[in-house]
Amino acid sequence: MSEWWTYSLRDLLLFSPRTYYRQFELYNLEWWPLQLVALALGIAVLALWRRGGERAGRAIAAILALCWLWVAWAFHGQRYASINLAAGYFAWAFVAQALLLLWFGGVRRRLTPASAPRVQVRAGLGLLLFAVLIFPLVAPLQGRNWTQAEVFGMAPDPTALATLGVLLLAGARPAWALYPIPAAWCLISGATLWTMDAPDFAVVPLAALLAVGLAAAARLEQAGAAQPGR
């Protein structure tokens, strides 16, 4: 696009808010009752974290990778692509995240629940609970229909937030390669909602920034503690 810098985000919005939220409605109706399975997977991630251990970490990685793959194909590829020309690129990014999760979580065992600063654990757990249990309530709380609920494992926002929560719970030595795609998606989603004047546009990007900030702070603290003479 020529003179792309002269375009504002609003100029690039291709669809109306009504059309955007309707995609979640059509998607949910198409795949019902898969939402219940997704919810069960989210709760399973919580249970596996409580259980702890390497096997639990690998199982969490497998569940998250499955969810990212599903969102890539079923949401971005089959649904969102019908109104957003960029959805194909989003789908490939989600596939890449699934592969990264399998590599770092399944092979390198970097998602094993581990001790971390208390604030990081609380934030991670809070993000995970918010993504799995609270996020589906956002649509009805805003006066939209239940059928437009965004469910972990099926919709991109709660899937990205839950992943960031899991990363915080995986200890003070973060797998940095697993952060960029969920964090970038949260920013893209927030920008999309902002262009549509959605009142909740800041929630997802702020949660992502919180996760990245806490992970960075924990890493810095750990590095400082490891320095001789301290």
């Binding site: 919005l13 291709l14 669809f15 109306s16 059309t19 309707r22 995609q23 059509l26 649904r79 019908s82 109104i83």
Partner: peptide
């Protein structure tokens, strides 16, 4: 622009 980009939503 925007108004007719409704995807495969039959009602829209």
């Amino acid at each position: 622009w925007i108004t007719f980009n409704v995807g495969d939503d039959r009602a829209a």
